[in-house]
Computed example of a mutant assay.
Amino acid sequence: MKQLHTAFVGYGSGGRIYNAPILSSVSGFRVTKILTSSPHNIKAALQDFPEAEVVSNLVEILEDSEIRLVILVLPNHLHYSFAKQILEAGKHLLVEKPFTPHVREANELIRLAHQNNLVLSINHNRRWDSDFRTVERIVKSSLLGRLVEYEAHFDRFRNEIKPGWKEKQELAGSGILYDLGSHLIDQALHLFGLPKEVFADIRMQRDHASVPDNFELLLFYPQIKVTLKAGTLVKEKGPTFTLHGTKGSYVKYGADVQEEALKKGQLPKDFSDWGREPEEIWGKLNTLDKKEFYKSEPGDYRVVYQNLFDAITSGAELEVKPEQARDVIKIIEAAQQSQDERRVVTFG
């Protein structure tokens, strides 16, 4: 099998927990260089990839002619400047979500990738959450009849302000709308496309918060109302997904199991049942025909990396196109406009 020489740019938790174990479970990647600086991250990088070289300067990756792919896992405000250099150097690129803080930056990177005939994708991995894959199956099979309402939540309880770039107002791309909101928005756009109108209520609820930590986002379609919500002061969680249609409803509690498994250091390749939810958190389907706990589809973040490999080596169509990730940022910018002007924003 072809070996795709790969470099990581950034090896904090996003790199070592959410990307490296997935890449390591897909054949064909060979990580040869890792750009990171903290002693903790250097140690982790060498443990995960003993044959890789840890470097302290991006130039060492850009000038390495053997490296064809770069995995960019840096704070959001650095995505554009680093991605631009990587694409200009002729490397294929996977950017951790969200793509960029601003649409104009995303458009420039898309132009560069097309101009240089490079594969550019964004790690919107939660399209392959177990619960969302199940929702997608229900929607596409019309089990609920004509869908009229879709509500998705990504809630946590984190009442203290932790140090780090995500909590710094002066850094572009900080706050919950870019962090968790980008997942929820991508899922909604994947199912329904772009909305006609957007309304947002964005708040700072924690004591001493300086960036948004709660939002409710409404996306209006001709026949469907989509509600996306996330908060950091939700101790008692409600449903993750709620869908209503002309023939019934589907309500799902609980979270996809892959994130907790990755936090424990587990690798997908070591588990035949990777991404499978326990029966006790299957969603409840209640229609005119039946009422049952509906078996969840297995989740699998490996799809992102397998598809990336196939796109680079054999020209396969990307599952997550950069234009789709750019549209997520369009929604975020429309939501911010809605919040600032306290009105519904016509999207288009």
Rank of each mutant, 00 (worst) to 15 (best):
M1G: 15
M1D: 15
H5R: 14
H5L: 06
H5Y: 14
G10E: 03
G10M: 02
G10N: 01
Y11P: 05
Y18F: 15
N19A: 11
N19D: 11
I22V: 13
S25L: 00
G28K: 08
F29R: 01
T32C: 10
L35C: 12
S38N: 05
P39F: 14
I42Q: 12
D48P: 08
F49T: 09
A52H: 11
E53S: 08
N57Q: 12
L58G: 02
E60Y: 08
I67Q: 05
I67C: 04
R68S: 13
L69K: 06
V70Y: 12
V73Y: 08
L74H: 04
L78R: 03
S81L: 05
F82T: 09
A83T: 09
K84M: 03
L87Y: 13
L87A: 06
G90A: 07
H92T: 09
L93Y: 11
L94Y: 03
E96F: 00
F99Q: 02
F99I: 04
N107G: 14
E108A: 15
I110N: 13
R111V: 11
A113W: 13
Q115T: 09
N116P: 04
N116A: 05
L118G: 05
N125M: 11
N125V: 06
S130P: 12
D131T: 12
F132S: 04
I138L: 15
I138P: 05
L144P: 11
L147P: 13
E149V: 07
Y150E: 07
E151D: 11
A152E: 14
A152Q: 15
D155Y: 07
R156M: 07
F157P: 02
N159R: 09
W165N: 03
K166M: 00
E167A: 02
S174D: 08
I176D: 01
L177G: 09
L180Q: 12
H183A: 07
I185W: 13
A188F: 12
A188C: 14
L189S: 09
K196F: 08
E197W: 09
D201L: 12
Q205H: 09
R206K: 14
R206Q: 08
H208V: 02
A209G: 04
P212L: 08
D213C: 08
L218S: 14
L218P: 00
P222F: 01
V226C: 06
A230I: 14
T232G: 06
E236M: 10
G238P: 06
T242E: 15
T242V: 11
L243Y: 08
T246H: 01
K247M: 09
K247P: 06
S249G: 04
K252I: 05
Y253G: 05
D256W: 09
V257I: 15
E259F: 09
E259H: 12
A261D: 11
K263V: 14
K263M: 14
G265C: 00
G265F: 01
P268W: 13
K269S: 15
D273C: 01
R276K: 15
R276W: 08
P278A: 00
E279Y: 10
I281D: 01
W282T: 06
D289L: 10
E292D: 00
F293M: 10
Y294K: 07
K295G: 05
S296R: 10
D310K: 05
G315V: 10
G315N: 06
V320F: 00
V320Y: 01
K321R: 04
K321H: 10
K330R: 15
K330D: 07
I331A: 03
A334L: 11
Q339G: 03
R342P: 01
T346G: 10
